[in-house]
Structure formats: C-alpha cells, structure tokens
C-alpha cells in the first residue's frame, strides 16, 4: 500500500484557467515593483482571515476568490483600477462573449 501521491501524476497545478491568470497577474505586478511580496502576503492573509471567520476555505475556488478580491482592493487603493473601471471592462468582456459566435476567438471591440 502506498498513499504517497505520485509526483508525476499530481493534480493540475491550477484547477481553473482564471486561477492561473490571477496568480500570474499578481506575480507580474510584484516583479514590476507595484508592491512587495510581504505587502501582498499581509493583505491576502487579512482577506483569508476575514473570509475564514464565516466559513471554512477549501483552498480551491474559495482561496482564489479571496486572492482576486485582495488584488482588486490593492489596485483600487493604488488608483489603478477603480470599481467603476472594473465594472465597465467586465461588461465589455461580457458583451464580447455574448456577441461572438461559438468557436470564434473572443476579443474586445477597440
């Protein structure tokens, strides 16, 4: 009997593409000097703590939702992505998805 998970057959690194995207976005902003990693950890752990008070986080979707919320707050405070701007860009993407025929690449109208 061997309970050790096999390294080669491990679970996917990111369960959802957006998990990878929000992760990469954060790492990239850190590398570009927008914030230090210690700052990120302090903010992110505060979000996790706040969420964890009301329910158990499962380390998957919950965890990346908390991650995304933290990044949105940080960028809002830095004046780089205000809530209205975010809502507008999100709506643009939603329109693009709803108006693009299935199978075609989805792009924003410039």
């Amino acid at each position: 009997m061997n309970d050790c998970p096999d390294i080669a057959a491990s679970e996917p690194v990111f369960a959802e593409p957006w998990h990878a995207q929000v992760f990469a976005l954060t790492v990239h902003l850190n590398e570009a000097g927008r914030f230090t990693w210690a700052e990120w950890v302090a903010r992110f752990s505060a979000t996790l703590k706040r969420h964890g008070l009301s329910r158990d986080l499962d380390g998957g979707e919950d965890y990346f939702n908390a991650w995304l919320e933290t990044l949105e707050m940080l960028l809002d405070e830095a004046g780089e992505a205000a809530p209205e701007e975010r809502a507008e860009a999100r709506a643009e993407w939603e329109r693009a998805y709803l108006s693009t025929p299935h199978g075609q690449p989805v792009r924003l109208a410039e």
Partner: peptide, 17 residues
C-alpha cells in the same frame, strides 16, 4: 455564442484589460 466565463474569470479579464 461563446460560452460566458464565470464571474471571477470575467473580473480577472477586466483587470488584465
């Protein structure tokens, strides 16, 4: 039409944009 991604996926796309 193309399948609409989840709310957080759209929010990440919005930030990227």
């Amino acid at each position: 039409h193309a399948l609409l991604p989840s709310d957080p996926a759209l929010r990440v796309k919005a930030l990227e944009t």
